[in-house]
Design a protein around this nucleic acid. Structure first.
Lengths: 108, 108
DNA sequence: ACTATATTTCCAATATTATGGAAATGTCAA
DNA sequence: TTGACATTTCCATAATATTGGAAATATAGT
């Protein structure tokens, strides 16, 4: 991932409502959930939600598909994977031990 | 990490100059490097640099210490580790395979 | 005390982002 | 084709962020 692209993705998540939307979509799973459901769950006015959904989509961190009258939004796991890879590789040049928090070998 | 804190850290990195500063500091290693050196290396005016350094410090993603006339800034690896942990855990509820890009077992 | 260097603070201009009501668009069902 | 519902676009307002010159502060050497 290029640095400019990383900035776009980071910015897309660097906003309370948008981060909440993304977290909600992760919870919703592969199929995602509709804009209306998100609006209700997070109590965000429709135009505001639409604005934020577009920002997230522009950053390719969520996907959308229309199904009849509903538009379903879902988390783009590959996008998040790419972001984490970028941060990990940028952060960890020479410091892999510090920056792989989830990499403990068989803790349980 | 709380969601609000995550937003602060994400926002601190969601800006080209600040991301470049952080990357530069990672390259500089544990001891970091001075504000002046950063300004020269990235060609950023001193007041602008100072503003961005403060943003990064406010987010606890970099540290600073004065040494005589110089102020040394260094990457806070623990902060980045915490951010990656947050993203990983948020992203991967039920999708660990997708979201651990660096976790392939013995590929080479 | 004076000078030089490093960095920050002050501040005002500019740019970008966020918000939500009202209106428009898209879709379906009857 | 009308009516109901879902979502977006339009748009004006408000809030926040970015920029860098000029001045202030901090430190060190003489």
């Amino acid at each position: 991932m290029e640095s400019k692209e990383a900035v776009t993705v980071l910015a897309s998540l660097a906003q309370e409502t948008r981060l909440a939307i993304f977290r909600h979509l992760v919870t919703a799973g592969e199929d995602g959930t509709s804009a209306g459901e998100i609006a209700t769950a997070l109590d965000v006015p429709a135009p505001t939600l639409s604005f934020h959904l577009k920002e997230l989509e522009r950053a390719s961190i969520i996907n959308s598909r229309r199904d009849g009258r509903l538009i379903y939004y879902s988390a783009n796991y590959a996008g998040m994977k790419a972001l984490i890879a970028f941060l990990t590789e940028d952060c960890c040049r020479g410091h892999p031990d510090v920056c792989f928090p989830a990499k403990r070998r068989r803790t349980s």
